[in-house]
Design a protein around this nucleic acid. Structure first.
Length: 273
DNA sequence: ACGCCCTCCTGTTGGC
DNA sequence: TGCCAACAGGAGGGCG
């Protein structure tokens, strides 16, 4: 579920509940995530105030007084705010962070590809973050920077978009959707894109991500009580998971193709190599 | 440096 | 209805 817009939505929903609060305690029910949760996590972060909440790529970063909590939701992770003693933990509720205001941040992740890490190193030097590529909403992300990323690469453009070490935050859904909107075939070799393609693609990426964030935002009011709601952007998918359905522009049935182990969906008529 | 493939894990779905 | 394989929104790590 969580690509850039979902993580941004979670950040916005979580922030008012947790910013300025002090962590009272941490409860680990299952430490076997992508990386083991530090058994001393509670010792290390209890008593620390949460100063701010940021996003980098698909990572959430809570800045504490003396360090940073790095949270990644993997493929199936979600976070909720719940009231103390109100809800029993469900299966796959792996970790609770109890705050002084009586609220609990509860981490849920059936596939356990997610991660919760604490570091006292400068956050930008953390090995998981240091190699991340440019943020799509960075001022520097424009037609020229995308062109410089693509001009010497032989991989298909879709894989370039999904490579978080080149561009951070775009996953399978938004790569598919942005390429459809830009009229570019997902299998196009990156180095074959010209500046015009790159300009269109940057505009599409911006537009798709912004629209998704805005729609995700409409579920914010449910954030406290609901289990990682899907958000409304899924109703806006033009190609992702739309195999066989008519293209919204030309009515040609949407096609699916495996690319590097992932499903690519596209309109064979509107999207050119 | 680059691109491809494998891996971690559980839950859901579709074909027979 | 049940069984089983395929697949799912990520991404680090290892290899050629």
């Amino acid at each position: 579920m969580p690509e850039l817009p979902e993580v941004e939505t979670i950040k916005l929903g979580l922030a008012p509940h947790i910013i300025g609060q002090t962590i009272q305690s941490t409860l680990i029910r299952e430490s076997r995530l992508r990386w083991p949760v530090d058994p001393e996590l509670n010792l290390k972060i209890a008593g620390q105030k949460i100063n701010s909440l940021k996003r980098r790529g698909k990572y959430l970063i809570a800045d504490l007084q003396a360090g940073h909590l790095i949270i990644h939701l993997g493929m199936s992770g979600s976070l909720r705010i719940i009231m103390i003693a109100l809800e029993q933990p469900r299966k796959h509720d792996h970790l609770d962070i109890r705050l002084d205001n009586g609220k609990i941040i509860r981490f849920h992740d059936p596939r356990r590809f997610g991660a919760i890490l604490y570091t006292t190193e400068p956050i930008e030097k953390h090995p998981l973050l240091v190699r991340l590529g440019i943020e799509p909403f960075d001022q520097q992300f424009n037609d020229r920077t995308l062109y410089s990323i693509t001009k010497n690469r032989k991989a298909p453009i879709k894989q370039i978009l999904m490579n978080s070490q080149l561009i951070a935050g775009i996953g399978n859904i938004y790569a598919n959707e942005a390429l459809f909107q830009a009229g570019i075939h997902p299998g196009t070799i990156a180095s074959n894109l010209n500046m015009i393609h790159c300009k269109k693609l940057v505009a599409s990426i911006h537009d798709i991500l912004l629209r998704a964030i805005n729609l995700g935002g409409s579920t914010l009011r449910d954030f406290v009580s609901s289990e990682g709601k899907q958000g409304y952007f899924q109703q806006e998918h033009e190609v992702y998971d739309q195999l066989g359905k008519p293209c919204s522009r030309c009515k040609t049935p949407i096609v699916m193709k495996r690319q590097n182990g992932r499903s690519s969906f596209f309109c064979p008529k509107c999207q050119k190599n």
